[in-house]
Design a protein around this nucleic acid. Structure first.
Lengths: 219, 219
DNA sequence: GCCTTTCTGTTGTATTTACAACTGTCTTGT
DNA sequence: ACAAGACAGTTGTAAATACAACAGAAAGGC
């Protein structure tokens, strides 16, 4: 676990919490880690969970497959981020999505009840932890709202431009990488892969952007 | 304010907080109320806010209009619900949407810093308030996810069925009212109003559902 | 009661998309 | 080095959508 201390210290959940405090906290929160193979489910639809997951290594997609096998990717979780916090906070609600490892992953689980109720006055950092969790929820809320904005566009081109503009803004540069391949991006934006691919090439030919695989340059 | 005490007591934000505690809390949170005419903005895009809004009376739409005047409705806020909590919690972030009164409204503003930092040990209900805020954020997160699910459907019919099924589940009955007229529903689902209207009638003719204005029956 | 405005439904057309099938390139494992 | 599989791009067609313009019904104001 020592290996991940700096990752944890810099994560949004543990921001502002000292390293020694963090170590003792992990015991309090009954932290356990588990590894997952590519393609394995960390959380499955219909489950009820009471732990927040923090991704130590790898990459996770929050996604859903419908009756006909159509995949819809809700979000991509990268190292240091948490997931499952919504259902862990809501306790009795069943999960509506799967959390799937898209690479070999290592995940840290933290009991959310202990985050919310443990030693309310004893730990000086406990209040900080709860406020951090609140901030993460608010940020995720904002990200979902931005995704809704991409999806509310009518055409594939507009969806792409909306998404790529946001990625560019987030990177603070017209040059950036995206965390998806073509099929994943199509499943993320809910469009047809081949149509999207064609649209990307059309925009490239028009000089709006250029790209190579998942590396993009907006102009 | 007395007039609204029972509304507040039953709101998700103040759930589990006694009536006398609530009264004294409102002072601590520097609560102020304001009225709005139909069409007025409670919050505007680009603003930075430090208060959570609680809707005492009326109805508010969280929405966004793009360059070409296309309206996109993100969510509908009804009496007793809060809004603006994401940006109030994130402090420095600019709002990306407008909050618009769609009826005459009365809104209660609560300073979010005082929710997060006031008398951490003195008030026994203060911890409850923070946890309530966390729960509300988690619930909104889930609602946004459900909306993303509607929007990820490819056809207008699928979007409608996804939305109407959820409304039916929420109402716990195949008979329910929706809080939108046709234009608003179309702006909410990001589809063309007339095409949506036609699709609804087609579904009615096929016996899938029946409706009158905003009153629906699923079969 | 009447006029105006809002709301809903209808139709036709041009645009856009989904879907399927296929090609060529790159990657991976052996 | 080779084969198998993953990935990106291309094309054609059927289906669905957006858009515009219009008509009738309902609601609201005077």
């Amino acid at each position: 676990m020592k290996k991940y201390l700096s990752l944890l210290k810099n994560s949004k959940l543990f921001q502002g919490i000292s390293e020694e405090e963090l170590t003792s906290m992990l015991d309090c929160l009954s932290a356990v880690t588990r590894s997952y193979h590519k393609g394995e489910c960390v959380f499955g639809r219909g489950e009820r969970i009471d732990s927040v997951a923090l991704l130590l290594e790898g990459s996770v997609h929050i996604q859903k497959e419908d009756y006909w096998g159509n995949l819809s990717i809700l979000s991509e979780i990268s190292e240091g981020e948490i997931f499952g916090e919504v259902y862990a906070c809501l306790g009795s609600d069943e999960m509506l999505n799967d959390a799937v490892a898209v690479k070999p992953c290592k995940v840290l689980f933290l009991d959310v009840k202990r985050i919310l109720t443990m030693c309310p006055s004893a730990c000086q950092f406990h209040g900080r932890l709860i406020r951090n969790l609140l901030t993460v929820l608010a940020q995720k809320n904002k990200i979902l709202t931005q995704k809704l904005e991409h999806m509310s566009r009518r055409t594939t081109r507009e969806k792409l431009l909306s998404y790529l503009s946001e990625q560019s803004l987030r990177a603070g540069s017209p040059v950036f990488d995206i965390p998806f391949n073509r099929q994943q991006l199509a499943d993320f934006l809910s469009v047809d892969r081949s149509a999207m691919s064609a649209e990307l090439c059309r925009m490239r030919d028009e000089g709006i952007l250029s790209f190579d695989r998942n590396h993009f340059i907006l102009k």
